[in-house]
Every structure is written in C-alpha cells, then in structure tokens.
C-alpha cells in the first residue's frame, strides 16, 4: 500500500464507484474540465465523459435539486458544492426535499444523493471559505452528515455514502486535503456510516472530536503521553445521527471529557454530544464536561493573528487537556 493524501483518497473513492456503477455521476461547479478547484475530480471527466462528470451552471439549488430528481429516478449522483459556505442556497432542497422524501412518501420513494463540500479554516479563506456548517444540518432526521478525519476513513466513508440509499452530506476538511497522508486500502473499501472510531486508546481523559481536530488532538495527546498522560481520542466520523453508544462508553470509562470542534462554540454538534453525556454518564463523571471550539463570532477572519485566534490547534488542545487532567 502506498501512502496517499486525504484528497487522493477521496478521488480514489469517486473513481472506484464510477467505474463500478454506471448510475454514479458527478455534478458541480468546475468539477469537469478543471477537475474541481481543489482537483478532487481531476481526470474523471476525461475518463467517464462530460455527462458523468458535469460542469453545472453556477447555481447551488439547481445542483442539489436536479441531483434529487435524478436520484429519485434511480441514479446515484454525487453533487459537489465548491465550498461548504455556499451550500446555503441549496438548503431548501436539502432540508425540505432530500431529507423528507423517504418519510413523506412512507418509503415509496427514496433519495440516494451524496453532497460533498470542503469545509473548515486555517487556510486564509476568511469568512466565506472557512466555515463549519455541519451544525446547520445536524438536527434534521432523514439526513446523514459525515466528516472523515483520515485518508482511509475518507475513502471508506465516501464509498459507503455513495452506496447509501439515503441522502448523505460529506464534509471534507480542506486543510486536510494535502496535509494528511497515510496508507489507504486499495480497491473496494468501506467504513460504516454512523459509527464513531477510537483513534487512540486511553484511560485518563476522553477527547471527542471530528475532522481535522482529530489529527490535532492526536498530536497533543502524543506530546502529553511523554509525561505519562493516557488520553483517549474518539473520532465521531458521522456527526448526524450520532453514535451514542460509543460516546457513552468512552465518557463513562474515563470520567473526564473534552469536546473539540472548529465550529463556533454555541449550538455546535458538541452541544448535542454534551447533552448525551449529561443524560447518560452524570454519575460516572469526575469533572465537568469541557469544550474547546471557535469563538462565537460570525466566521473566521482573514488577517493571520485573528485567524489563529479563531482556529483550534494542537497547542490550544494540549492546554485544555492539561486543564482537564489536573481537574
């Protein structure tokens, strides 16, 4: 197995599924001839033709709405929204339509679409190229929201998402695209949606996180391990619906929980994780639940010191871990 990047792993998954299933097609802005602004879909139009890797007009509701129509007719569209920040014009199609088609038709119809979008900051993207939008979609039953943290998970979860018979939002951390590399299983490889994953076993405290913050948390845990601290890292992988069982199991085991997200603190996915722990693990806890997140400002600023102030990083996580360890 060769080492490949998070981005290459996603490309591999798309290529694998397009080669295997003729019903899979890609649509989005600049995904065809250019191969995407991040080059995730590079080469796919050449290989599978203009109709199966289509450059759409600049209209997000159209991208998602037509994907829904094709999906209801039996296709497996993978729609790309160029930046997660621009998914908002399509929210009516996602929340009012895709999420409700199976339910409102009592199972007569279903909507197997995947919507991919790069999210997250730390790349000088400013307010409109840095946002974490997962919380907007993570209280809508009918949707699945997946955020991989490693190249292997990215490949395995994307293949699972394409094969899933319900709508899946697949958010890819854009800073992870070229930063993270590892050996990734070749060929057919799936990772189950809806299952969290213990990325590091530990006994002292539990860090629950997802996305790029998993890598940052692992770095921080590694540093602290030199002082004998034993930290567990639970990667949610699917932020909706949540894997309650894994959250409860890990929180109960260590009794000390730090929740880390790059999203704004208030009303993030971690607010629900916190509620799950409070409801189920209160008597196992040895410290209050702690959170580390972006500040409650509208979005990430451009200028470097302000951007760093917003972003979560290994130093901030390490500091918060120590605080919890010493509690």
């Amino acid at each position: 197995m060769a080492k490949i990047s998070y981005l290459q792993a996603i490309s591999n998954a798309l290529d694998h599924e397009m080669g295997k299933d003729e019903d899979v097609f890609i649509l989005g802005e600049d995904v065809g001839k250019k191969g995407g602004v991040f080059k995730v879909t590079a080469g796919l139009q050449e290989k599978y033709g203009e109709l199966r890797c289509m450059d759409t007009p600049l209209a997000e509701s159209n991208i998602v709405g037509t994907a829904i129509g094709a999906a209801m007719m039996g296709k497996r569209p993978v729609a790309e929204i160029q930046f997660a920040d621009y998914i908002l014009p399509a929210t009516n199609q996602i929340l009012s339509e895709a999420a409700k088609i199976r339910y409102r038709s009592n199972g007569d119809w279903n909507c197997p679409i995947v919507i991919r979008a790069p999210f997250g900051g730390g790349i000088h993207g400013a307010l409109y190229h840095s946002q974490s939008v997962e919380a907007l979609f993570s209280s809508t039953p009918g949707l699945k929201v997946v955020i991989p943290s490693t190249p292997s998970d990215a490949k395995g979860l994307l293949i699972s998402a394409i094969r899933d018979n319900d709508p899946v939002l697949f958010f890819e951390h854009k800073k992870a695209y070229r930063l993270l590399k590892e050996e990734v299983p070749e060929g057919d490889y799936t990772v189950p949606i809806g299952k969290a994953d213990v990325k590091r076993k530990g006994e002292d405290i539990t860090v629950i996180t997802y996305g790029l913050c998993v890598n940052y948390s692992l770095q921080a845990a590694e540093r602290l391990s030199k002082d004998g601290h034993d930290i567990e890292i639970l990667d949610l992988r699917t932020v909706y619906p949540l894997d309650k069982e894994s959250i409860i199991e890990s929180a109960s085991k260590t009794g000390k929980v730090l929740l880390v997200t790059e999203d704004n603190l208030e009303g993030s996915v971690m607010s629900e994780v916190s509620a799950i722990i409070a409801e189920n693990c209160l008597y196992d806890l040895d410290a209050p639940i702690m959170r580390l997140a972006g500040p409650d400002v509208p979005a990430m600023p451009y200028s470097p010191l302000m951007e760093d102030h917003f972003m979560v990083n290994p130093d901030k996580i390490e500091k918060k871990m120590l605080e919890l360890l010493e509690h």
Partner: peptide, 20 residues
C-alpha cells in the same frame, strides 16, 4: 414524484429526472 409543500422545488426534480 413525491411533492413537499415548499413551492417550485419540484421543477428541479423534473429537470433532474430529465437529465437521467
């Protein structure tokens, strides 16, 4: 095709079906 109450969303579904 199944319809919701939010008007005009159905136009895109027909267009998507036609793309298929």
């Amino acid at each position: 095709l199944s319809q919701g109450s939010a008007v005009t969303t159905q136009v895109l579904h027909a267009v998507g079906a036609a793309y298929k």
